[in-house]
């Protein structure tokens, strides 16, 4: 009896006093919890983005190379009207769209197999296989593709007996490599979306007379459309911003990222680079605006 009595009245320690203080002061608790992430998000991310926006309206003295912090629309006008920027923007969007379409087409059957057909054990194995490439370095994978696609690479060796040839370095190679790199980011949300579709819905469709195709078109597709769009947001935005892959396998082709890179580096024109960097940001925001009503943003 006495020992139980002692145990029920714990000793007052500093840690205990601190816990007691926190449990009665929810605002302090919240502040401690969120201080670090909010610092990161606000200072490092949002402020950096705002600075980028501001810099785009400055200019560089072409003689001294010093940044003039006077408001000007010159960079924006140049980026919007200059034929180089228009061409590269179209090319970049084209590559991003092609990558996105290829990834969705590849991801749908894999994700469906993983979520609805495979045994739980097989499902885990496949999930690991999808995730494993993400643990390898981006550069290693890009250079691996450079070697695969080269004139004496494995693709040439595989296709030559059938009269085919490797596409060599260029935009097709860029699209192939980017599709490979971003495929896991498209598979995972679609897989998660399919997992959330109860099997009984598919059975109900079959039960009511729906064959495979009507079931996919009328039941599965509408239900996972938000998940598909979530996947496309990844592949599309990651492709829009990429400049390394195109450097490695793209031959002489440039994408928006390359223009940003050369303007920051060689040309030393940070304001123009900022203005170019705004292009993919504007496109992505436009895309997000278009898809926000589908519920896709709840699936990220």
């Amino acid at each position: 009896m006495t020992s139980a009595h002692v145990e029920s009245r714990p000793r007052r320690t500093t840690a205990r006093a601190g816990s007691a203080f926190l449990s009665t002061h929810p605002r302090t608790r919240l502040a401690l919890l969120l201080a670090a992430p909010l610092f990161w998000l606000v200072i490092v991310y949002i402020v950096a983005l705002a600075l980028l926006l501001v810099t785009a309206f400055w200019s560089v003295d072409s003689f001294t190379g010093v940044i003039t912090t006077e408001f000007t629309l010159d960079n924006i006008i140049e980026v919007v009207t200059g034929s180089l920027y228009q061409t590269v923007t179209l090319r970049t969007v084209g590559v991003a769209l092609a990558v996105t379409i290829i990834d969705v087409v590849l991801a749908l059957p894999i994700a469906f197999f993983m979520a609805k057909v495979a045994t739980p054990r097989m499902q885990r194995v496949l999930l690991i296989m999808v995730l494993t490439p993400l643990w390898a370095s981006y550069l290693v994978k890009a250079y691996a593709w450079r070697s695969v696609l080269s004139q004496d690479g494995i693709l040439e060796w595989l296709l030559a007996p059938f009269g085919g040839h490797t596409p060599g370095y260029g935009l097709p190679a860029t699209i192939i490599t980017l599709s490979y790199l971003w495929l896991p980011y498209v598979i995972l949300p679609i897989y998660a979306g399919l997992e959330r579709v109860p099997d009984s819905l598919l059975e109900a469709s079959g039960d009511l007379g729906g064959k495979t195709w009507p079931t996919l078109r009328l039941i599965v597709f509408p239900l996972i459309l938000p998940a598909i769009i979530a996947g496309t947001i990844f592949s599309f935005s990651l492709s829009l911003g990429d400049y390394i892959t195109v450097n490695i396998v793209g031959g002489t082709n440039q994408m928006l990222g390359n223009l940003v890179y050369t303007n920051v580096g060689a040309a030393n024109n940070l304001p123009l680079a900022s203005a170019i960097a705004l292009i993919p940001i504007v496109i992505i925001f436009g895309y997000l605006f278009l898809v926000r009503r589908t519920g896709a943003l709840d699936n990220l």
């Binding site: 059975e203 109900a204 079959g206 007379g209 509408p222």
Partner: peptide
């Protein structure tokens, strides 16, 4: 299943969440 003249009422009802009630009933 789609070739059998039997229909099922599921334990969890399995109503299609993206369709209205009328569309659900009209699905078959």
């Amino acid at each position: 299943p789609f070739d059998r003249d039997v229909n099922t009422v599921f334990q969890d009802y399995a109503l299609f969440p993206h369709m209205t009630v009328l569309e659900n009933v009209a699905y078959g």
